[in-house]
Amino acid sequence: MTDLVFLSLATVTIASSILALEARDLVYGAAALGIAFLGMAGLFFYLDAAYIGAFQIAVYIGAVVVLILFTVMLVGPQLGEPPLELKRLSLLAAILVSLLLGTAGAVSSASAFPGPDNCGSGCDLIGLSNALINQYGVQLEFLSLVLAAAVIGALTLAKTDRKTE
C-alpha cells in the first residue's frame, strides 16, 4: 500500500519534470513544473515532513510558478527552440552522472540508514521550531536579511527599467 503511494508520487514527479523541460509551450512547461513540485510536496508528506510539504506548496507553486507564468506571459511565446548539437552528448553525460551517483548512493547508504517506521521526536513540530529558533536563530535572521535584499534587488531591476523607457 505505502509502496504504491511512493511509486505514484515518484512517477508523477519525474514524468512532469521531464515534461517541464520538453513541453513545446513554456506555459505548459511551467504548469508541469508546478505538478512536479506538488509531487515533491507529496514525497515530503510521505517522509513525515508535513510542515515542509505545506511550505513547499505555498512557496514553490504559490510564488515561484506564478512568477514564472507571469514572466512567460509578459515575455511572450518563445517558440522554435533551435536544436543544439550537443544534445545527445549532454543527455549521455546526465545519464552517466546519475548512474554513477546512484550506484554510489545505493552501495554506501542502503544499510546505514535503517529508518525507523515511527518517526517520533525527529519529525516533531515542536522539535522543528525549537531547532529553528534556538539553534539556528542567527541563520534565520541572516536569511531574512538576504531575502529582503533579494526582493529589493528584483524590484529595482524591474522598476528602473520602466522609468528609462
Binding site: 512557496v59 514553490y60 510564488a63 512568477l67 538576504v146 531575502l147 533579494a150 534587488g153 528584483a154 531591476l157
Partner: peptide
Amino acid sequence: IALAAMEAAVGLAIVML
C-alpha cells in the same frame, strides 16, 4: 526553499529586463 524562491525572483526579474 527560501533561497530558491529568492533566486527565482531575481532570475525572473533579469529575464524580464
